[in-house]
């Protein structure tokens, strides 16, 4: 089972935001790849000026070979910490035929980068989806998750329009990990007044879950570190 993603066709710009470490980048990469199946041209833009290591640059090859344009900051995954965004981001607003997923940096600090584009985003139309994960301690209480959404809205001058429940514990995730977060996700939606639009889970977990809003995802971040 896989969720119907046609609600992402219009408006054509989707912003992925949320608390850092919830899995935003991986969700953004998966959404871009899933949308590519029905839309073209489509681009993924990395607007993360906060996180120094785990970036959509890691998934560049997978995206480009699937036909997704990738817009990366010049210094992503390099040895310097230069919080600058590429001019090419503006092309997203100038090309009315282009669908785009924008991977925004974590927390209100990361969302600050959106502020400069706020008026253009309002012009073009956008949806801003916030990723939540019940196992991240700083947003493990729904009221803290909602406070984070409000801080992101304030920093970005934009509105969060949907929630994505991406609750997981990396490779220790079980179907119960995700199931036990359903109530949390509903509470976040009720408290914030923002609807839950997707539940994401790794393919092996998703195969054991039943939900109309379920999107099975793959991991595109590199990992060759064994556990002890």
């Amino acid at each position: 089972m896989s969720a119907d993603l046609s609600f992402l066709h219009s408006p054509r710009i989707t912003l992925i935001t949320g608390h850092y470490g919830t899995g935003k980048t991986n969700v953004a990469v998966n959404l871009a790849l899933a949308l590519r199946l029905s839309l073209s041209p489509i681009a993924l833009a990395d607007l993360d000026i906060v996180n120094p290591y785990f970036r959509s640059a890691d998934a560049r090859q997978a995206l480009e070979s699937a036909g997704v344009e990738v817009i990366l900051p010049a210094y992503a995954n390099t040895n310097v910490d230069v919080p600058s965004l590429p001019a090419r981001v503006a092309s997203v607003f100038d090309r009315p035929d282009l669908h785009a997923v924008l991977d925004v940096g974590g927390d209100d600090a990361g969302a600050t980068a959106l502020g400069q584009y706020a008026s253009r985003l309002e012009e073009c139309g956008y949806r801003m989806l916030a990723v939540i994960n019940a196992r991240r301690p700083e947003i493990a209480r729904p009221e803290d998750a909602v406070a984070m959404l409000r801080a992101i809205e304030q920093a970005s001058h934009l509105k969060v329009t949907g929630l994505i429940n991406n609750t997981h514990l990396c490779e220790e995730t079980t179907p119960q990990t995700v199931e036990s977060s359903f109530q949390y996700a509903d509470q976040c939606a009720r408290l914030s007044g923002v609807p839950l639009v997707l539940t994401t889970a790794e393919e092996r977990i998703a195969a054991q879950l039943q939900r109309p809003d379920l999107l099975p995802i793959r991991l595109y971040t590199k990992n060759y570190l064994e556990r002890f």
């Binding site: 470490g21 991240r136 990396c170």
Partner: peptide, 9 residues
Amino acid sequence: EKVLMKGNE
């Protein structure tokens, strides 16, 4: 209950 955290956090 297990939580998901960065090494730094």
